[in-house]
């Protein structure tokens, strides 16, 4: 304990509550409130309603939720496979190559998402690789943007894994494939699940690359929230944002459970 006087602590806690309230709590609360607002002309809404949720769910929101979930799932699954594969096979490289490739696998996380979208438009608008206008280009954009995070998470997990496990397995006669499947991957499971969850969440909220490349008929949640608020339909936008937040948090919490079970704690 750094501050011993009670008054000093209370002042600091009040400061914390103020900052936390203004920056973090108020935004979430006000999104929730506005998603339920009927009439809102004064400081607070004069009436509450669930009509916005009904409206968005009867409108195109169902499609947006589906598009986001499918995109998120496929892109995250592909990123998980590719990121895990990359992290595992990177261990077999020499020191210099390992550093270089490790850096290259991280770079997609550093490039602005809009530029990733622009690059895909430029690269894949002509045959033989004509992806522009298809659902696939959205998946690819999300995959590129989240692949670095899965790679990073799995690499971090591998770095924490004691080499003893794999070495003992080898000494007992386990060939590399058997060892990978029965020892390395199960021990990495918590990191794999966490990586999948984080990339799913990132994909669910991705906007920059998606607005560049999305085809009509595959409008993700962030894009449709933007078009709702851009039209001035802010309450429906808030309702859809709440759906996005709840879906993301439910997903993360669910996966956290799975991870806890996988790590056996």
């Amino acid at each position: 304990m750094l501050v011993w006087s009670r008054s000093g602590r209370l002042v600091l806690w009040a400061l914390f509550a103020l900052v936390f309230g203004v920056l973090f709590l108020a935004p979430l609360a006000v999104i929730l409130l506005s998603s339920l607002a009927g009439q809102w002309n004064g400081v607070l809404p004069s009436s509450l309603t669930t009509a916005h949720y009904g409206d968005v769910l009867h409108g195109s929101a169902g499609d947006a939720v589906k598009a986001s979930l499918v995109t998120g799932f496929l892109a995250s699954a592909l990123a998980l496979v590719s990121g895990t594969w990359a992290a595992l096979s990177l261990r077999l490289q020499g020191h210099a190559l390992r550093r270089l490739l490790g850096l290259l696998f991280f770079i997609p996380s550093a490039v602005p998402s809009v530029s990733v979208g622009l690059g895909l438009l430029v690269a894949f608008s002509n045959p033989p690789l004509l992806l522009n206008g298809t659902v696939a280009i959205v998946m690819v954009a999300h995959f590129v943007l989240i692949s670095a995070f899965t790679f990073g998470n799995v690499s971090a997990g591998l770095a924490r894994l004691s080499p003893d496990f794999e070495q003992v397995a080898s000494s007992l006669g386990a060939r590399p494939g058997y060892r990978l499947w029965h020892v390395t991957l199960p021990l990495l499971a918590p990191y794999l699940v966490a990586a999948f969850g984080l990339s799913f969440a990132l994909s669910m909220g991705e906007l920059g690359a998606t607005v560049m490349v999305y085809p009509p008929g595959w409008v993700t949640l962030p894009v449709s929230i933007f078009s709702l608020t851009d039209r001035g339909d802010v309450f429906a936008g808030a309702a859809l944002t709440m759906i996005l937040v709840v879906a993301t948090l439910a997903l993360l919490l669910g996966l956290e459970r799975v991870a806890a079970r996988a790590s056996g704690s």
Binding site: P27, I31, M204, G205, I225, T229, G237, L244
Partner: peptide
């Protein structure tokens, strides 16, 4: 894990 634009929307 939350989308960045959520905060902007809330700020409006």
């Amino acid at each position: 894990a939350l989308p960045t634009f959520l905060v902007t929307l809330a700020f409006t």
